[in-house]
Design a protein around this nucleic acid. Structure first.
Length: 574
RNA sequence: CGGGGUGUAGCUCAGAUGGCUAGAGCGGAGCGUUUGGGACGCUCAGGCCGCAGGUUCAAGUCCUGUCACCCCGACCA
């Protein structure tokens, strides 16, 4: 492709709204343009990158026996009501909905469990037709509460989504294992360094689920990894071992203490010279359900933090968030900062983290402004609560298997997520088949997503330098950038043309900067920015039949005869 | 949705206390000089100052509303 006629351009200035490096570089190098918040146009060069990623995905999916489909992007409300997700997604504010001319409600799909389940249930009636794994590469829509970071969190994005249909759990696990292998191969082939982590299933549902995280400091997800690397989990899911708290001793009588203004564990620790692990903090949440809301009080040992995802799962809520002051007052009858589990108002669900279980003679809020209770004991002063694992694991905690060492915190970009769904959708939607005994059974499903456009952004996030993008060769829009230093110089022009045709003849994709009247400096800057793996420069040495071949990542360059360009480029692409 | 902020040329931005015939740099067009790291000179084009009201002799500037976008927080491939 010749740059003199290609729609390839670069920007000198960084668009004001570009914050993360992938967004800045993709915009400056002419790969993407923003059309609306979280909505991007892909230029020809970006389309090539997306094609590369898509093809890798396709090959590895097909290799595992999955079959490609194309599903509607606009879907009727009905199937979403069948699965029960219309309400949930709308409540989350993430569903793009529209109404057609006759008043029917539709949505732009955020994911396609319903459509695939419907398609399969209409056509598959017997176990003999199973297993199946169907997928598509298509645009998805989520009206993100806050789109940001360019392609990283768009409202419209390209996703590969796959759905497996099996006879039983064993089949589902086998399908899951295959997808896990496919994903490993895909991300390796894309040249990404990644970590597989245990994850929370969120709105998709299901049991075992893992995320594929591209390692990047700018990632939005926090990951905890054991020192030996064998345990890795999203912080939403992570578990850990913690030192026992300070012992409280034999039960003493409970008493009220005046604690004016002391709302924090720190302040109380100082006032009573009491270790935070001797206190229980009571954190109030608003739990959102499909048709209602509830106040939930979570009891947590004073030196530990609450994991909100675990709270939501424990109560079966769509989401939980910190209660606002009004809700706190309604639940406790006191100002925020003095909430406690003793005599909590009716209607407030009380949960306790398991770390609270051994505690005796602890300190907690009194549900009375400026007062706390000391020497409180479960069973005597308040009912024994429902104990759950609600604690947020932290860096420095011991891995649940202590032999693996302590947990280290890193960050990642979620590019893939695989789920063992079970029969959540098939049961809800009446998707059944006849088994060997002729009995009707729901499909046992799995679902598997890869953010294709996000993979491209993550690749840039992980592969760039001060001058621009450094594409991993397998997903670069072209393999080689041939740069003619001065297209007005006949010899240079001829050498450039020769390199272009020799490389293309060898099946190597070439972007050829043949622009006239563009200074060499500009061409080199643009070339660095665009970031193709190999650069071939037709410059001052062409009079001797020599061009320069340079590797973008290392900057290492060699002078080679024009006749040897193909061989040199091939060597470097390996 | 809550909190903060910004809308002026294709892009990045400047335009105190209202006086504008609206600017700069970059980018673009033309001519010429350049040609191994965003080169130089001359000339030129380019603006419903986000939108709608209002105040005023006078509004890019003040007021009201509205829309869009960005940042910080709760959601996800």
């Amino acid at each position: 492709m010749r740059q003199s006629i290609a729609f390839v351009y670069t920007l000198r200035d960084v668009p004001a709204d570009a914050e993360v490096v992938s967004h800045r570089l993709l915009a400056r190098a002419g790969y993407i343009q923003k059309l609306a918040a979280g909505v991007y146009s892909y230029t020809p060069s970006m389309a090539r990158v997306l094609q590369k990623v898509s093809n890798i995905v396709r090959e590895e999916m097909n290799r595992q026996g999955a079959q490609e489909c194309v599903m509607p992007i606009i879907q009727p409300k009905e199937i979403w009501e069948e699965s029960g997700r219309w309400e949930r997604y709308q409540k989350g504010g993430q569903l793009f909905t529209l109404v057609d001319h006759k008043g029917s409600e539709m949505c732009l799909v955020p994911t396609a469990e319903e459509a695939f389940t419907t398609m399969v249930k209409r056509a598959v009636t017997s176990y003999r037709q199973l297993p199946l794994n169907l997928y598509q590469l298509h645009t998805k829509f989520r009206d993100e509460i806050r789109p940001r970071f360019g392609l990283m969190r768009g409202r419209e994005f390209i996703m590969k989504d796959a759905y497996s249909f099996d006879i039983d759990d064993e089949g589902m696990r086998a399908a899951y294992a295959k997808m896990r292998i496919a994903y490993q191969r895909i991300f390796e082939r894309c040249g990404l360094k990644y970590t597989i982590v245990q994850a929370d299933a969120g709105a998709i549902g299901g049991s075992a689920t893992e995320e594929f995280m591209v390692n990047a400091d700018t990632g939005e997800d926090t990951i905890l990894v054991s020192e030996d690397g064998s345990y890795a989990a999203n912080v939403e899911k992570a578990e850990s071992l913690i030192p026992a708290g300070e012992a409280g001793g034999e039960a003493k009588p409970m008493h009220l203490e005046h604690t004016p203004g002391d709302k924090s564990v720190d302040q109380l620790s100082k006032r009573f010279n009491l270790a935070p692990s001797r206190m229980i903090k009571t954190i109030l949440f608003r739990a959102v359900f499909a048709e209602s809301e509830e106040t939930v009080a979570v009891l947590m040992r004073g030196d530990l933090d609450v994991n909100e995802v675990k709270v939501a799962n424990a109560v079966g809520a769509i989401a939980v968030d910190l209660a606002d002051d009004a809700r706190v007052r309604a639940a406790t009858g006191a100002e925020p900062g003095f909430a406690g589990p003793v005599d909590m108002k009716a209607g407030v669900k009380v949960l306790a983290d398991i770390s609270c279980k051994p505690m005796t003679n602890f300190l907690c809020g009194a549900n009375k402004s400026d007062y706390h209770l000391l020497d409180v004991n479960f069973g005597r002063d308040l009912p024994v609560p429902d104990y759950k694992e609600l604690r947020r694991a932290r860096a420095g905690d011991m891995c649940i298997d202590a032999k693996r060492g302590k947990l280290i915190e890193t960050r990642g970009i979620e590019v893939g997520h695989i789920f063992q769904l079970g029969t959540k959708y098939s049961s809800a939607m009446g998707a059944r088949f006849a088994d060997e005994e002729g009995k009707e059974r729901p499909f046992v499903m799995g679902c598997y997503g890869i953010g294709v456009s996000r993979v491209a952004a993550a690749a840039v996030e992980q592969n760039h330098d001060k001058d621009g993008i450094v594409w991993p060769a397998p997903i670069a829009p072209w393999q080689v950038h041939v740069v003619c230093v001065n297209s007005g110089d006949l010899l240079m022009k001829q050498a450039g043309d020769q390199c272009e045709s020799a490389l293309e003849g060898a099946g190597i994709e070439v972007l050829y900067d043949d622009r006239a009247n563009v200074s060499p400096g500009v061409k080199f800057k643009d070339s660095d920015l665009i970031g193709l793996p190999i650069r071939v420069v037709a410059g001052r040495d062409v009079k001797d039949g020599i061009v320069e071949v340079r590797t973008r990542r290392t900057g290492e360059a060699a002078k080679v005869k024009i006749a040897d360009v193909v061989a040199e480029v091939r060597k470097r692409l390996e």
